[in-house]
Design a protein around this nucleic acid. Structure first.
Lengths: 284, 284
DNA sequence: AAAATCCCTTCCGCTGGACGGAAAGGGGGC
DNA sequence: GCCCCCTTTCCGTCCAGCGGAAGGGATTTT
């Protein structure tokens, strides 16, 4: 064995903080509960290290342990997550309007915000009697494959758009927009019309309609979307309701263009300033 | 200076994992965005250590940084939090029923699960046209001071109840139940009647009604509650709707007592096994 | 305009705590 | 019974994380 040779290349160069985070990182929608040795294997950390860190995380509340010995994400993390400015606050403000929208349209409603090249759903209202769509609260999807994501992308900086277009765009169905030129054209349409209408991007038999939400300084900070079964009455009929919802939320957030008159309480939310320094700007 | 003497007593005995967690821990509802030096002061870590850890956390996505230089909890934590079995999954299942309940009653609806001596709201539907109550998603409150908390406490083990009763029970209003004997009596009532009805426990002018939700093996895993303004029509009128909601959710979770007949798909949720090992069993 | 104050960032030498190996202690299946 | 896999604990070594200090902005005060 060329153990010695490997050693020098071995990516054992992890800081202790990274070790802690890598443990949290092994949990995903398909791995909600994992055993010590599962986690040890998946992180590449030794058993003893994993064991010690798991105990520390559990004691703090970041993880909980079940009677079968497996670990899961703890409620303390859920609690923490609601403190994310784009999460808790935005959701809090938007929720009643999203409710109204759902009752008016009977579709699946999503509220998405950008993170990296993805859109994250900070709220997801699932209609009871419609097709199941992959739309969990907290779900993460590539921007190019969802209605809300495309809206957010369309209103991002030019350089960011090119960065995304240059990356590998996964194809989920044969309708998924992956061709850079087609996407550029589509994004321009979205900016012009103010709405994105797509179908079968992520899964078949689904249409999505989405519009931007603006915050202070009229920056696009989020997007609302509806997904309905393919073959529903014209998706264009959903636009007015969406536009009204978007405007209401934007006004509540203090977007100048949505404020009807004076006397409206100033909303100065923290997330008005969106993260601009991406990891790539720091790494290496 | 007696620096040397102090050194030995100094609680600088933090593991590196604890340092990471202590940083996350400084964020709360009143501190959504903090600067490097804020965090350094509040954690007691040196500037250089804080600086390094903040960068690692940010790179991973646990924190985000705004253009003013302040840090906030990042969306990755929100995403992670939804993986908590009592969070994402329970919420997902319960949400449609909670919706129905809200539309039937027009109150503020809470879905609470136990953690430590507290109840955490994994869902909170706020009525638009009623008194504002302190009910954030992810909010944490002492069990003895909320309707849902009292329900959960009533259905906890005897020893856990005594542990809570023996702790310092904070008084929020002069109606807050803090006398151990009065609480014991009240909890017995809750067990007997299956419902908790309280008023002005946490804030004045509010009534709360709450009932338990059961999961596999008929264990009480959560509680649903409604809060309405004091002086609303008899809270007893809310009980049937609550009971129906609770039963629907319990059935969806696979609670034997709520399952009407056979043929129901088995729901074996992870959180059927509630954490039993408390920190106290490990500490020291 | 100089001085003072505060905050962020980077560098570097030292040390003690985190690390991994190993072995003991369950527990369930074949 | 035996075997296999998982969890827990112990301990000596070593290097990664730590804190001090200094430098550079930005803003405010005198």
């Amino acid at each position: 064995m060329t153990v010695l040779a490997d050693k020098s290349l071995e990516p054992h160069r992890l800081t202790s903080a990274q070790r802690v985070l890598s443990i949290l990182g092994v949990f995903d929608t398909e791995n909600l509960a994992l055993s010590l040795s599962d986690i040890s294997r998946r992180t590449g950390l030794t058993l003893s290290t994993t064991h010690r860190l798991l105990n520390e995380l559990r004691r703090w509340g970041a993880l909980s342990r079940h009677s079968d010995g497996k670990y899961s994400i703890g409620l303390r993390i859920l609690e923490l997550g609601t403190l994310a400015p784009q999460g808790g606050q935005l959701r809090e403000i938007a929720l009643p309007y999203l409710h109204d929208l759902q009752h008016a349209t009977r579709g699946n409603i999503h509220l998405g915000v950008p993170e990296g090249h993805d859109v994250i759903y900070v709220e997801s209202l699932r209609a009871r009697d419609t097709v199941p769509v992959p739309s969990r609260l907290g779900g993460r999807w590539p921007m190019h494959a969802t209605g809300t994501g495309l809206v957010l992308l369309a209103h991002s900086s030019q350089e960011f758009q090119e960065e995304v277009l240059a990356s590998k765009l996964r194809r989920y169905t044969d309708h998924t927009l992956t061709d850079p030129d087609a996407l550029r054209h589509f994004l321009a349409e979205v900016r012009k019309s103010g709405v994105a209408i797509v179908q079968s991007q992520l899964t078949y038999d689904v249409m999505a309609v989405a519009v931007p939400i603006r915050g202070p300084r009229d920056r696009v900070v989020a997007a609302v979307g509806i997904t309905v079964p393919l073959g529903s009455p014209s998706p264009h009929s959903l636009v007015p309701a969406l536009a009204a919802t978007s405007r209401s939320i934007s006004r509540a957030l203090g977007a100048p263009s949505a404020v009807a008159d004076a006397g409206v309480p100033r909303q100065t939310a923290h997330w008005q300033v969106r993260e601009v320094k991406y990891s790539s700007a720091v790494g290496s």
